[in-house]
């Protein structure tokens, strides 16, 4: 009887390992964009660390603030020193879940709508977020895409009075991360 128990444990363990999958990338992309009377603000970060666990739907990404690259050096300096204070708050994180993960067939190529719920931490402030996006399954890779707006005031990012009417109070965030299965 004992050997049957061992067999059952090995089989269950194999099944758990067989079904549990982790998709990761270290080269995800996040773009921030805002257009206001003073000027257009645009920056890209292509070193976004991302992981998606299937079938739980746990989804996490981590971004280093100093890895955002701007076209204008002065804008990058202000972003790091005055707005995001990247020496004090060097990273932004998202910890959450794809809530409709069961509707996504990871074995069938296609583009699936996805809803992400979790907590976004920027500038040391954490806020709950719920956003829609897509998951594309193609050639064994999973590409998550989403576009949403965040309010600077939610994350305690203050705009100096002198430019308060010339800088947008919200910023558009575009996320595009292509993850491959972890071996």
């Amino acid at each position: 009887m004992k050997k049957y128990w061992i067999l059952i444990i090995i089989t269950v363990g194999f099944c758990i390992n067989g079904f549990a999958q982790t998709y990761v990338t270290k080269n995800g992309m996040i773009r921030i964009y805002s257009e206001a009377p003073l000027e257009k603000i645009e920056a890209v970060n292509r070193q976004v660390n991302t992981a998606l666990l299937v079938p739980t739907g746990d989804f996490v990404f981590k971004v280093l603030i100093k890895s955002f690259n701007f076209e204008k050096a002065l804008m990058q300096e202000h972003f790091n020193e005055n707005y995001l204070e990247s020496d004090k708050y060097p990273e932004a994180t998202f910890l959450g879940k794809i809530t409709n993960i069961k509707d996504i067939n990871f074995t069938k190529e296609g583009i699936y709508p996805a809803t992400v719920e979790g907590k976004l931490t920027i500038h040391g402030q954490t806020h709950p977020v719920k956003q829609n996006g897509t998951l594309e399954i193609k050639n064994g890779a999973v590409t998550a895409k989403s576009k949403f707006n965040i309010l600077l005031s939610d994350y305690n990012i203050s705009i100096p009075n002198t430019v308060v009417n010339k800088i947008s109070k919200s910023i558009e965030v575009t996320v595009e991360v292509m993850m491959t299965k972890l071996n």
């Binding site: 270290k26 070193q47 981590k62 603030i65 100093k66 990273e91």
Partner: peptide
């Protein structure tokens, strides 16, 4: 390179 920090898994240089 320019060090932008540590993201829990890697040190990033740009």
């Amino acid at each position: 390179g320019y060090c932008t920090g540590f993201n829990e898994t890697d040190v990033i240089m740009e």
